[in-house]
Amino acid sequence: MVLFGQEMNFNRIILNETAVKAFKLTDPIGAIGHGLDSQFKQEVIGVVEDFHFSSLKEKIQPIVFFFRKGKGSYSMIIHVNPSNLSAVNQHMKETGLFFFPEMEEDIKVEYNFLEESYDAQYNSEERLGELFVYFTLLAVFIASLGLYGLSSYSISKRTREIAIRKANGALIPEIFIMVIKNYLVWISLAFIVALPVGYWLMNRWLQEFAYHIQVSWLSLVEACLITLVVAILTVLYQTLRAALAKPAQALKYE
């Protein structure tokens, strides 16, 4: 809340909510009109809601806004149309001169985009994210190769059994379920080990952020489903090849 219509000067300040708490003012409304201390006598004329002005890793700090006139640098955040930046630049100069006519030609406008500033704050996280994606894909690829090799070996050892079962009435889906069942047991065991560890690691990383999301159980379920699909696709070819083969081929060499 800001009391509009009051002239701004060095002794009239605006606080954010955290600053209100930091100065131990009873509440934002109550802070309006009170001097911060006996020495400086600033008067709080407004309180603004807390907003993030630095990385989410850090807690929102107290801010005191005050008006300072004279030569120096001033910054403001404005909403612009990025397709016409030269007009924006010109308009900024004109507006600056309106407020500070004494600066005449000394006024200089420098701007950067808020989006880029935010991006810069999370560069390391983005790089970490990319690295995680690459290494995860690599790990999944290596694990799939291993699973493919294991399933090839396992199915080649069970070719005769599959043929016997087919001769005795097993249909292709039944053979597929029989083979995949073994892998499902191992994958389930892997989930039991990996899920708590993954959950704990993700939470630990998120603790670095003062403001962070909660790890959703849904994302863990999604991870399980993706793993399951990758595992099934990996063993699918070998299993189907064995299940579709004529039983006579496997039985005649016995």
Partner: peptide, 21 residues
């Protein structure tokens, strides 16, 4: 393949030289 398996199921019994148990 599928039709063959469905057809022989319960209709044909096999005994092999090497038992195939």
């Amino acid at each position: 393949e599928m039709q063959q398996t469905r057809f022989r199921k319960g209709k044909i019994g096999f005994v092999f030289q090497s038992f195939n148990l």
